[in-house]
Amino acid sequence: MEIPYTVKPRPDTGVYNAKIGIWLFLASEIMLFGALFSSYIILRITAPEGTWLEGVLNVPIGFGNTLVLIASSVTVVMAWASLKLNNYKAFQRYMIFTVLCALTFLLVKSFEYNEKFHHYEVWTTDETDNRFTGHFDKEWLSEQKAAYKARVAEMDAQYQAALSEWSSSDKSTDAPREPDYPKITFFTLTTAEIRDLSSFLGFDSVIFEKEHKHAYKYAGMPEVDDHAHHDEAGHEGDESHAEGGHGHHETLTIPVGNIKRASAFIPSHSTFFAIYFTLTGLHALHVFLGACVLAYFVFCNRRMWKEDPDRLANRVEVGGLFWHFVDLVWIFLFPVLYLL
């Protein structure tokens, strides 16, 4: 027996199998993102005073990305309508546009992520609990990186030489020890890594480009006006997009001993960035998988269009439903993470 209702709807329920399937799946997705949103709310309302970041994300980028996703949502439903109108060419055009939108979204998102990885917040002990954001001086950082690499290479070479000498000897002495150096990737630097690096390379202060713009704010904290003659404490809104090294900077030399904590804007920085990366990362994963499926429909299902056009239309409808859902999630994510 064949499985019934794969293409034609079942009379009493009025839907075909895959449609019930995708709606069931979306129901579970509602619970998935719903649980994450709930977690976001709980984390935010239970955050100890002064630990929840606000207004650190790049609003224009988020805004642009929202428009991109909305546009793709329109085109994906147009692609389906074109199939229904027997217009395969239009279907292709719309679908390819949709997939391109998805790729644009992901590309922009990856730049946005990258920016966060290079943006640091430093807590110092010198004055009263001083915190500021910015990034390490680029030249200084690449110098340290080069120095580190050279030093590690040197130690490795020494070890190799000692090892080959030892293995050709009578092995009466102990084998040479593996070189002991801190493992540092330079992807981002943590406080511990900075300390390790400073003792390893022998520098005792870091060079930091401090942002002057008031670029971040902790919920429930008095506003940090670290530049008295810079009268912008009032409007954190429109001035808050100063990430990535634009705007004024002040070069600081911070003794390593004074750094209480330094962290890039990565998940371990704060629960805000943790939930930000989780929510947007999971969403981006959905965008990626959705784009793959839609691309498959437009590039690999041409034969199905000739043999069983209804089936292809159903597929596109189901894929489209998923895509709209992904868009729908972003419609909430954007204001919640970027604006509120």
Binding site: L24, S28, M31, L32, A35, P267, A274, T278
Partner: peptide, 16 residues
């Protein structure tokens, strides 16, 4: 279908 996704989320968060 409806109760497992929250644990999935929680699992991901604990993993992080």
């Amino acid at each position: 279908l409806l109760a497992f996704p929250p644990l999935q989320v929680a699992g991901i968060m604990q993993l992080f």
